[in-house]
């Protein structure tokens, strides 16, 4: 059983998944941040691979990506940083990123190296399900990686079923039709969340986009198995020194619970 599936067997409510950009704020902060998140009590981590043109992301994550790239972050460097991370980190870790850098790396090589490093799954927002099934699913499955699809309030029921069927690990419910970091009004989306819940999907559901504090986190958790926080977390890392990172992360996570 994958680490992600195991997590949801053990914990069905209030699952906290935290996103951060690899190589931000400093190039070698990736592991210290992972460690601090684990120590602070996060349940899962989504590690962003920086890209020059991150279409699904808002300005905060985009500028953290630009900074990480300026720091010299690459996929190759990330795998180097992750070489021995499983000695310390037992949380499920997903890689989130865009197709172009992965195609340059070589899609199969990428899956192989991610799997060897101990990565559990992938979130690739610009890999749509048609192309996934056509060409990429077999490689992702060959290396035993989970793959998480996104659904939005505009996604029709039949398509939600299809995306759920093709996903493994969990289904990522985008809280509103938006890029990351927009202020979502979760109450307005109640019908959508209730629809997802009533569909009895194969996968657990995690809500993301616009989750930023205790109240939005618990609201999201009342509709789903848990929630994903990205932009608000990137904001607290801004200008954090290596020393400050564990403290800031502990305080941030404590405030959510």
């Amino acid at each position: 059983m994958s680490r992600i599936k195991e997590l949801f067997v053990k914990k069905k409510q209030n699952v906290l998944n935290v996103y951060f950009t690899a190589g931000y704020p400093a190039l070698n902060d990736t592991l210290p941040i992972l460690k601090a998140l684990q120590d602070a009590g996060a349940d899962m981590v989504e590690l962003g691979m920086p890209y020059s043109d991150p279409l699904a992301d808002g300005p905060v994550i985009q500028s953290s990506s630009a900074r990480a790239l300026a720091n010299g972050m690459t996929i190759l460097k990330l795998f180097d940083q992750l070489k021995n991370f499983r000695k310390e980190i037992h949380l499920p870790v997903l890689l989130m990123g865009y197709m172009n850098p992965i195609l340059q790396y070589g899609f199969e090589n990428f899956c192989r190296d991610a799997s060897e490093a101990g990565i559990d799954g992938l979130i690739l927002p610009d890999l749509p399900v048609y192309e996934f099934e056509n060409e990429f699913a077999k490689l992702i499955r060959k290396y035993n990686l989970d793959f998480i699809f996104l659904v939005t309030p505009e996604t029709e029921e039949m398509r939600i079923r299809k995306l759920d069927e093709q996903s493994s690990g969990f289904l990522y419910a985008v809280s509103s039709s938006s890029t990351t970091g927009k202020n979502a009004t979760l109450n307005q989306q109640e019908n959508y969340f209730n629809k997802l819940r009533s569909m009895e999907l194969k996968n657990p559901v995690m809500i993301g986009f616009g989750i930023k504090d205790k109240s939005s986190f618990s609201k999201a958790c009342s509709f789903a198995n848990g929630a994903i926080i990205g932009t608000a977390f990137i904001n607290i890392l801004e200008n954090a020194s290596l020393k400050e990172i564990p403290v800031r992360i502990r305080d941030f996570i404590n405030c959510l619970k």
Partner: peptide
């Protein structure tokens, strides 16, 4: 039908743009 000219084209878009 899926927008390919030889090996080029397609629609690599996030789900938020799908509809």
């Amino acid at each position: 039908e899926k927008g390919y000219y030889g090996e080029f084209g397609g629609a690599f878009i996030p789900e938020m743009l799908f509809s």
